[in-house]
Design a protein around this nucleic acid. Sequence first.
DNA 1: TTTTGAGTTGTTCGA
DNA 2: GTCGAACAACTCAAA
Length: 484
Amino acid sequence: MSQAPAIMWFRRDLRLRDNPALDAALRTSDGRIVCVYIRETDPTWRAMGEASQWWLDKSLRALSADLEALGSQLVLRTGSAGQVIDALLKETGAQSVFWNRRYDRPGREIDGALKSALLAQYISVTSFNGSLLTEPWTQVTGAGGYYKVYSPYWRAVQANYVCPPSIDAPLSLLPVKAETEALEDWQLHPHAPDWSAGFDAIWTPGESNARDRLFAFLDGPVEIYGDDRDRPDLEFGTSGLSPHLAFGEISPAQVWRATQNRIDANQVDEGHARKFLSEVAWRDFAYVLLFHNPDLAEENYKPDFDLMPWQDDADLLRAWQTGQTGYPIVDAGMRQLWTTGWMHNRVRMIVASFLTKHLLIDWRRGEDWFWDTLVDADPASNSASWQWVAGSGADAAPYFRIFNPITQGEKFDQTGNYVRKWCPELARLPRKYLFCPWKAGPLILREAGITLGETYPNPIVDHKTGRARALAAYDILKERRDAA
DNA sequence: TTTTGAGTTGTTCGA
DNA sequence: GTCGAACAACTCAAA
């Protein structure tokens, strides 16, 4: 007697291994699983940015191929989740639905409503933690609230987290007939214009590539991660796992397990490896903040910041977006982002500080741009990190911490190769002037083939002036607050 | 309830 | 070049 099929609803968990919802669906259905990805049309949904859609396109392709190799298929549907799932239940006779949980407000609302509706029809619904180490409500302070400071949060995670045993991918699946839309028709690959030409050289979406990246990282770079993670001039200073994690092609539990195994076997330096795990836990921490502050992408975490005198300036914003600020480390970062869909973490902080402090532009403009252009754009990390830099966030940088875009370049782009790669018009400058070309004399500029204001912009704001103006803005903020 | 110590990622200035 | 102190005031977490 064959059991009824089960529906596995894939979201940001595009993998077959270590997928608790898929595993449970398998056990319920003897392998007769309807695997579906829904292009959701709910109006509360924040549409993915173009770079993320590029990634999604390739990731769905990879998942689809993996499922076909097991004898199944990936069903693609467009519509509201409720209608799509309802239709699939009717078409296939499935009697149970499985998914891994999400934590942003639209996602929770959609899932919660669907779950109630299905249970009312006696359809079984089971959800799992497939995307985080620990879920946002599990780490509780002595006073019973959620953690708002990372260090004690990390201590709690280390004390409480028990990494679950790994789950194998299904060995085989049975086909269940269901119509699917064609991925090509979704047109996820950027068009008008297609600015993704540089992505392919860096990224290969998909589960097997995510694992390759993890193990390549654990086989070498992790050994000195604590030092090299801040070096944008190194290709393998960081793991490069962020987009794979954002789409769930690999789970943080898999990352934890593999790293912990290396620690236990004394194959890696424990301090450096734990530093890496603490960065993975930062991703969880961002989800804690998002879960308890669903407006994190739109509203200041600290309401005081509603009084901040931001400046609206479309030209300055455009100069920042296009990498034409006249500060080489900032421009290098923004061009790397535009070309590859990714930016090194250290440089993200520098460009974010520059936008919100030197230019006094609202962090939401930066968050929007990153959301559209990052392949790893994540609803929790993106907003939590922008607010952290801007000073409006939880456990944020003190207001007087204004990154100096010259000394940051000198300190972290140690070889200068980062700026030389992304700002090739400056490549012939001696390192002494690489991060501040306007300080070079006319002879040096001429020898380097640079005409400031023509081949490379003059700084759009003077560092000292910009810093003083940002500090003055915080004074205004304080005055307004105290007056209120 | 009160108290105490601490808080991812920095910069500048002056000795 | 290198080093330590000052930069404010506040919130958080735990004793």
